[in-house]
Design a protein around this nucleic acid. Sequence first.
DNA 1: CCTACCGATCGGTAGG
DNA 2: CCTACCGATCGGTAGG
Lengths: 194, 194
Amino acid sequence: MAKRQDILSAAGTLFREHGYHATTMRGIAKSLEMRGSSLYAHVDSKEAMLFEIVTQAADAFKAQAESVAPSLDAKARLEALIRGHLAVIARELPNATVFFHDWRFLSTEARRNITERRDAYEQYFRDVIAQGVESGVFYTDNAKVATLFILSALNGSYEWFDPQGALSLEEISDYYVDYVLNALAGGRGEKHAN
Amino acid sequence: MAKRQDILSAAGTLFREHGYHATTMRGIAKSLEMRGSSLYAHVDSKEAMLFEIVTQAADAFKAQAESVAPSLDAKARLEALIRGHLAVIARELPNATVFFHDWRFLSTEARRNITERRDAYEQYFRDVIAQGVESGVFYTDNAKVATLFILSALNGSYEWFDPQGALSLEEISDYYVDYVLNALAGGRGEKHAN
DNA sequence: CCTACCGATCGGTAGG
DNA sequence: CCTACCGATCGGTAGG
């Protein structure tokens, strides 16, 4: 239904701007020239909207990770994951922002659902890092920490990425792929404490 | 005054857990076995508390950056900035979390004050990266993007750092210093698109 | 999709 | 630091 997506889209935009709790049902309705009570013909509750928005973002991240060919070598796979991840953030800026920022305001069950999906997504990164370590192109003894480092670096982009900005998505992706692949290339190796 | 800091500390903990808007003055008071109205003998308003908490975090980041000797070479300076930054996050976990998460709920003037301080802090990183590029130990043609990449990666740690966790602050710092210095070491250089 | 409305709760003040 | 209280606003429902 068009209207339903319109409402979720308006909610996503406002959740992104003001946060979930500072956004009111009346505010969402007003941005669509409706009354607050009319929203309830399309959505069950404010929290149901949050869950749906966060789920849409999780779906997008999952779809991009699944689209990366497993037959590629570790570097190419990681590069594709990085580009895909940044592309999802850029394309779904409101939903992705809400996904990162407000997932913790979900009720217990919904929150567990989302954290499970996030963990499954992180596993794609851990796997490709482990693959690269095994094939000798990456150097790290802790794929989990490396994944947190990488995903944190990528996720930060939702705070400052600007579609109208000086740097295009592709330019940013070029830089980030470079930094991440270098980070794991571990030129000197002996640097790390043991 | 002890009581005043107690209130700000309790507020910081609750802001961190539930976010600024979902935290109530009565909730803060309750965690101190007081009534909501009693808080106003010590603080002016809820937003004044947010500003003070965010300012305390900004002060801590600034102090650590200033404590790094400018006479060091670029790698040593960047390493010190990374370790100091992670140490502040670990030591001021509630305040730092609120700093990252809820600064945008400040009023216009207060928000500008904080973004200015954040920009000044980022300048420390841009400067040391530029220094390293000039002295030939770092390879990047965009110190600003590199800074955003690095600070995003470091800042993400507030989401998962656990003082009781398997990895100590020092172990995490070792990994992160390694990743960041490698990222900028740019082993192959030709990787980057032009 | 609207008007009318509800109970709950919010940040904050008065006055001691 | 408390009791008592205020106007405003919230998410949501009734009933059309």
